[in-house]
Every structure is written in C-alpha cells, then in structure tokens.
Design a protein around this nucleic acid. Structure first.
Lengths: 345, 345
DNA sequence: TGTTAGCACTCGCTTAACAAGAGTGCTAAT
DNA sequence: ATTAGCACTCTTGTTAAGCGAGTGCTAACA
C-alpha cells in the first residue's frame, strides 16, 4: 500500500490532535479537524489502512487511534526537513555568562525545562584529545608537594603529593623545568613508556616522585569518564498521565537521580552521526534507556571549543511537541556554541 | 487525664502496627497484637481517651485510628532515650574511602537509601573559619597568571588571572613572597582593608593584580554559601501511597532536584542544638520545607575535622520506622566522624 | 469499679447493573 | 470512490446494594 498525500495529511492530523489532547482520536474528529472535507466514514477507511501499515494503533477496540512509534518517527522526520523557527525570548535569558560552568549549565537545564515543560538534562563538556599546557610543582610544607596541571581549555587539576623527605628549592626548580619541557603540548597518547623512563632517569632519586606527577597529569588530560550531568524539571513528568504511573515515574525519577543512566544517553547521542543539525530523536522503544521506553528523547550536541563537546537533551512523553522542542534545542545549542567563540575574543 | 502506662503501651502498639501496614488500625487488632490481654472493647475505650488527648485520630468515623503528629512525637522522643542498636553490616559497605569526596558522599546517600527504603540526602562538609595555608602564582603564558590558593583542610582553588602586559620572573617571585608572608595563616575576618592597602602599596604598579589575587583568596576561604547536596532514593517515595499522590510527589521530586530547598533543611539542622546525638526529627508540619508537610525528616550532623560539618538526612512518610532510621543515621554519622580521624594518622 | 460481651449503627469500599457516549466495521446507496 | 446509516463493541460514569471493619453504647459480670 502507498502512503499517499491524503493518508499523510490524515496521519499528521491524528498526531497533531493527539499531541494536544493526549486522548485517542476518532474518525469524526479528524473529519472536522482537517480541511480535506471528508466524512468520518472515509476517514475510518483511511485510518484502517494506516493502522494496517503500522503508523497508528488502537489502544482497544472502539477507542480512537493513537500514533505508533513508527508514526511519530515519520512525523518527526518530515518535520526535521523544515527549518525550525527561532525561539527568540530564550536569548535574553542566557545573556550574561555565569562565571561558574556549574551554574551556567544548571541554568541552561532549568531554562529548557521551564520553557518546554519537559524533563531536561545538560552535560558538562567532555574533553577529548586534550594536551598539557602547563605544570607547576610547589612545596606547601615539608611533606606535601602541590602539583598543578593545566591543560588546553584551561582544565586545571590539583594533586597533593606526599613526600618522605623534604625536597629543596633547587631540585624543585629542576623538576619543574624537566616536567614542562618534556610534557608541554603533549596529548595522552604521546606520553609513552619510553618518555616516562627517560624522565625518571633524568630525575634521578626523585624518579618515583616524577611518576606520581605524571599520574596526575594523566588524570588531567585523559578523557573524563564520569561526566557531570545537570538535570531539571524531572517533576514535569507528572504533567503527562502516561508517564506518571507509579512504576513509570519511579523508574524515570531514578534515572534522573542516578545520573549514570543518563550518561548512556550521552554516549549514544555522541556516537551517532545524527542528522545535519546534530539533533537526534529517540521515540519510545528506540530509547537507549530501559526506563524511558514510554518516552521520547531529543538530544543535541554542543561544542565548547575544540574537542570539548557536551549534550543537551529533553525527555518527555511520546506525544511531545517535537516542533517546539527541536527548535528550542537548536537555539540553545547555538547559544552554547557561540558562547565559547565570544569568550575567545 | 493521665497518660498511664497502659495507654502508653496501646499507643505504641497502634503506632508500630501503623508503621508496618500503613492502614488505620482498629481495636480488635490491638487486642490481639499486645500482650495486655484486654478485649477489643476495653481497647476501644482507651483509644477513645487517646483520641481525646490528641495522640491519635480517625481519618473518618468507622475507620481505625492513626497516630497524630503529637503521637509520633511522643513515640520518637521516648525511643530516642534508648540506645539505638548498631547496624553492623553498614560498616563493611563504607570501608574503602573514595579518593573523591564526591563519590564518597554520593555513596553514603545511596547506602542510606537502599538500607532504609526512604529518600536520603547528604551534604558536603561546609567549612567555616578556614585559613590560608599557601598561595602560589605561576605564569602560564604571557597574558595569563594562574593563582593557586590552598586553605587549611586542603581546599584548593585555582583562578586564572589575565594581565595586560607580561610580568617577569623576578616580580613574580616577589609577589609570591609578599602574598605568602602577608596572608598565610589568616582567616577571612583577619584580611581587612588596612592589610590589603598595605599589600597593594608594597606591590607598587601591580597593586590591582594583587587585588585580583586577594579576591581569589577570599573566594577560597569564605564560608561556602552554595553547598553541595547529594541525594539518593528519591523514587522511594513511590513506595508510600500517601506520598505518591501526584501533587505531593511532584513537589517532593522538585525539592530533590533543585537542591536549594534541601539546603534550608541543613540550615535548620545546623542551627538547632538538637538532642545529645545531634539527631533531629521533624514530623509533618514541623518540617521546615513546605513540600514536605506530609513527611517526616530525620537529620544528623557529622563532623569532618574542625569546622567542617555536614548533614545527612532521611525523608520519608510520617509512618517511618524511626527506630531503624535513627539507628542507621547514628551509625553513618559515626562512620563519617571517624573517617577524618583515620585520615589524620 | 474495671472489664467484657453484645448489638446497632456508620462509613468506606467493592461489585454489579445500567445508561450514555464514542468509535468502529460493514453494507448499501449514491 | 465516497458517503450515509446502522448495528455492535467497548469505555466511562453513575447508582444501588451488600459487605466488612470498626466504633459507641449499654448491660452484664467479676
């Protein structure tokens, strides 16, 4: 069977209507809703076809139809084609960039949540392929040496290293020079065993100490594996009865609290090439997270300068206002992308 | 009317039973439940008295009785007198202390939640009256100076300061010495305007730069006003129908996600002297948080060495197993208290 | 005088029965 | 190909009845 234009229009009408009401939609409603001027009986026939083709389904006989995952998918895909409108007001809310990344990202999550009425998540940018920029050892007291490692992108890591016996100023200076000349500009793959043993040799009796410092360096520039996730509006799920059922809600809330699960989402969003906008939509069963089988998820990746990429996402019911969500996500994504560029100059 | 021993026993029986079942409890149940060997009729008379005295109440006529806030309060108070038993298994779960405070505290919240089946929160220790231990300026490149400030308790803060024109090595060294000799060992109250202007004078043309550094120092040792809160088991509220109602749940989940509200709880827990164990119990309306009017909250403070205190808390239904909760909290509190001491040696 | 047995009464909860409404599938007419 | 009409199905809401749990009260009892 072919999905001709009329069927497509009817399908769209069904989905639109269902998005608004959350109720199964019947033939009579569609007959009046659209500008096709068809009777409910005709619609019924078409709907029967659409059901057979798998785009819609009946929760039970003698109820209206609701979109299936496949139906949503079609709708979303066709919608993605069009250019989403700009969500202008959002811009003002993000003007002043917060000194602290923490606050900024939490804020972004909140703005998204308030604006869309869905649950949202934002991850801190993840570095990859980062390089050493600067290393500094300082003696805090007799037994403690503070190692500060700065990586490209101004990621800073401090490590306190305990030493058995004091290291004098002269040695400290030498070690500092050794570390900086040897390691600056290197990425994690470039720091190999040969280099390390060469450095240890040069450090003489402080070889093991150098080892500690290198560990700290590695810790700084390696790809961070536990990423920060900020969420907001988890309680929005209560606005959608189909998600607010006890078991559903419990699972969702849990996912939002133990953020590890959300990390999977990020991995998935990053891996996939996504469409041209870097926006991905997971509908129902497509979701990479078990407890979100009844949700739809829309994610976008943003880039905070080279190699530092994060993800923003929205989790809501399948009858989600995809148009608005995609538009909003795009706007925020752009905001974040440009934030870094502004920062540069 | 007097609250004699028999009434007390009956009240306890009612509460215990209600804690288990969550259902209003009737006279016949009590008559068999207790070892008092009284008929249901007698119990009824006593219950009637207890209701008059305000310890229990009837949700509606011809239902059993449930404890009132006042009743819970009595029960809790009397229970606090006894020494809570130790929750031995918990010890094993907390043996290895995580390198990262983050992980540790998140873990603690989780352990608490899994163990009690309630929602839990743990705050990171808050410093107060902290002192400067060490300051280090390093030149990262021509325009950027990295200021590292270490406070007692090894709290470290890095700040990147942009300078218009390069500062040469000699000056850097002088500024480092100036900062360390002037500020080391000082608390925030001791860094007054006189001291600051004196330092600026000594720094000559770099006065404004010194100002930036001092700001960074202040940032490090000032009492942190936005504190970290870790939560776990928020979805446990769904296990208690009286909390799982849509509006209730929504408010609670929101409080757990936007942790600012929980901070109030912490303030309250810190302020109050609490009983001898530092454990506080809020029942129903006593709660400092609006959205938790139907909950009971139990909090304890722990101390992570001098001046660094945090709070752990459990949020659950009013029919909470107070005995177990208080016992568990005590154990965890002790764990955390000793963690720091072990760390010292 | 305190305790108990018995009984009538109340109230909430469950179930069944019923009516109304919405929606479908099918058929026959256009 | 489209539509009107009709019988049928299923959901939802309402009402009524019955049940069970629990109370309050009274009278009997030790």
């Amino acid at each position: 069977m072919q999905l001709d234009e009329r069927k497509m229009k009817i399908l769209q009408a069904i989905i639109r209507n269902y998005l608004e009401t959350g109720e199964p939609v019947g033939s009579r409603t569609i007959s009046k809703y659209t500008d096709l001027n068809l009777s409910s009986a005709t619609i019924r026939n078409e709907m029967s076809d659409l059901e057979e083709m798998g785009y819609i389904l009946q929760p039970h006989t003698s109820a209206g139809r609701i979109p299936s995952d496949k139906g949503y998918r079609l709708y979303v895909d066709s919608m993605m084609e069009e250019n989403a409108r700009q969500v202008e007001e959002l811009k003002e809310m993000l003007v002043e960039k917060d000194e602290k990344m923490d606050h900024l990202l939490k804020q972004v999550a909140k703005v998204l949540a308030v604006n869309t009425n869905y649950a949202t998540m934002v991850t801190a940018p993840r570095v990859s392929g980062n390089k050493v920029k600067f290393i500094q050892l300082s003696r805090v007291n007799e037994e403690q040496i503070l190692a500060v490692v700065v990586a490209e992108g101004n990621i800073i890591k401090n490590t306190m290293i305990n030493v058995d016996e004091p290291i004098n100023d002269e040695v400290m200076l030498k070690l500092n020079i050794l570390l900086n000349t040897s390691l600056n500009g290197l990425a994690i793959e470039e720091i190999n065993l040969a280099l390390i043993s060469k450095m240890k040799a040069q450090a003489g009796e402080y070889g093991s100490f150098i080892g500690d410092v290198i560990d700290a360096v590695a810790e700084t520039i390696k790809d961070d594996d536990d990423l920060e996730v900020y969420t907001s509006g988890a309680n929005n799920i209560f606005k959608y009865p189909e998600l607010a059922s006890e078991q559903n809600a419990s699972g969702l809330i849990n996912a939002f609290e133990e953020k590890e699960l959300l990390a999977q989402l990020v991995d998935s969003a990053m891996d996939e090439t996504g469409n041209k906008n870097g926006i991905r939509v997971y509908i129902g069963e497509e979701s990479p997270i078990q407890s979100m089988k009844d949700c739809s998820i829309v994610t976008a990746n943003y880039e905070f300068g080279e190699g530092m990429r994060g993800t923003i996402g929205i989790i809501g019911p399948k009858r989600m206002d995809y148009e608005k969500v995609v538009g909003t996500l795009k706007t925020i994504k752009t905001q974040l992308d440009t934030l870094y560029q502004d920062d540069k100059k």
